[in-house]
Computed example of a mutant assay.
Amino acid sequence: MSTPSRRSLLPVACLAVGVLAGSVGTAVLSPAPLKAEAVDRNEKMAIFTSPLSIGRPGEGVFVLDGTTGTLVGGVVGNNGGFTTSYMRNVAADFGDRAGLAEYVVVSGTTDNGGGMIYIAENRSGVVAAYGIPAGNGRQLPLVPAGTFNFKAAVQ
């Protein structure tokens, strides 16, 4: 029986090194998992999900009533029931006293990882951002974080 030559072991050694390097590279350099917020709407309401506040994993579900301008949300707890709720009258924030506002809404994440809700109102041209405060088992207000007028920015 002859012993294998060094030449015949070279491809096997290269393959082993490549598999090891690929495994280590995948474990160390794997991208962060992607998350997608969901949104759906009809003529009178929008429902969407948003990440929660900094340091609180998970997401909340929110409903914007386009007729009243009421934004409400909830977070499902470990027991399966809703444990935290949020509420804000965004109609007042946009100065809509007649119920004529035309809202669109999306959610996102801030640079530091907190959840943010963005609502634009067509008639006023204002976009308002609302932060989602941390809290468990109680009702909390959504916190205004800033506004800008998208119609003024174009002029």
Rank of each mutant, 00 (worst) to 15 (best):
V154Y: 00
V28M: 12
T67E: 15
G81C: 01
G18Y: 01
V63R: 14
N136L: 06
M116Y: 01
I119N: 10
I47P: 02
G131Y: 02
V126A: 02
F62E: 11
A152G: 00
L64H: 05
V106N: 14
T70A: 15
I117D: 09
T49G: 13
D65M: 12
E59A: 11
K35F: 13
P11K: 12
G99V: 10
A21G: 07
G113Y: 08
G18W: 07
N78S: 14
T26F: 14
N136H: 11
V61G: 11
T84D: 03
S2H: 09
T147K: 08
A129T: 05
G135Y: 01
Y130A: 10
S107N: 05
T68I: 03
N42A: 05
G114L: 03
V28K: 10
G58Y: 03
R88A: 15
T83Q: 10
V17R: 02
F148A: 10
M116H: 02
S124V: 06
A21Q: 10
G73K: 06
I47N: 01
F94I: 03
M45Y: 08
G115N: 11
R41F: 12
V104H: 11
G66E: 13
G22R: 04
T110L: 11
F62N: 04
D96I: 09
A98M: 06
P33H: 11
G137A: 01
G25D: 12
M45P: 00
L15W: 03
Y118T: 12
K35W: 03
L64C: 03
S23I: 02
T70C: 02
R123F: 00
M87P: 01
T83P: 00
N42L: 07
A36C: 01
T84L: 08
I117C: 05
G137L: 04
A129W: 02
L64M: 02
G108R: 11
A91G: 15
T67D: 15
G146W: 04
A152Y: 00
T26N: 11
K44C: 05
P51C: 03
D111R: 13
G114Q: 12
G69R: 11
A153K: 05
T83L: 03
R6D: 15
L52D: 06
N89Q: 14
M87C: 09
V24T: 10
G60D: 13
V75A: 08
A38C: 02
T110E: 14
E59V: 04
E43G: 10
P144L: 07
G69H: 13
N149V: 00
L9G: 04
V75E: 05
N136R: 04
R41S: 14
V104A: 14
A129P: 00
S8R: 15
G58V: 04
P11H: 11
V17I: 15
C14S: 14
L142F: 09
Q139N: 14
G108F: 09
E43Y: 04
S107L: 03
G55M: 04
V90Y: 04
M116A: 09
E121L: 05
G18T: 15
F82E: 07
M1N: 08
Q139H: 01
S107V: 06
S53Y: 01
G74D: 07
N112H: 06
A46I: 05
V90M: 03
S107T: 12
V19Q: 08
V127C: 07
A92V: 13
K44L: 14
E121Q: 14
V104C: 08
L142A: 05
N122I: 00
P51T: 06
T26Y: 15
G115A: 07
E37I: 05
L34V: 15
S5D: 10
G77L: 02
V76Q: 14
N112Y: 08
A101Y: 10
